[in-house]
Amino acid sequence: MFIVKVNPDYCKGCGLCIDLCPKHIMAMTGKINDKGMDLAECAKPEDCIGCKSCAMTCPDAAITIEKQ
């Protein structure tokens, strides 16, 4: 199991992680934060294979991944 955390302070909702996730489980939350930005999240953590694509492509180092 992998826990993919997207830090709301750093994420700007650019969506690059969504494109590069091979399992297509990264998605926008639909919630707008106080900076007026929609944030990304891992919508189906159970399908995550821990390939770290999302974290690698994130231009704001907002994503951390923990293997349980």
């Binding site: 650019c14 231009p59 293997k67």
Partner: peptide
């Protein structure tokens, strides 16, 4: 606690940047 396989680099301070989304 599991094992962190990807953490935020300590080279960057713990604050957001001003760069545009996707820059």
């Amino acid at each position: 606690m599991g094992e962190m396989i990807y953490k935020r680099t300590d080279f960057l301070k713990a604050r957001p940047t001003h760069y545009c989304p996707g820059c």
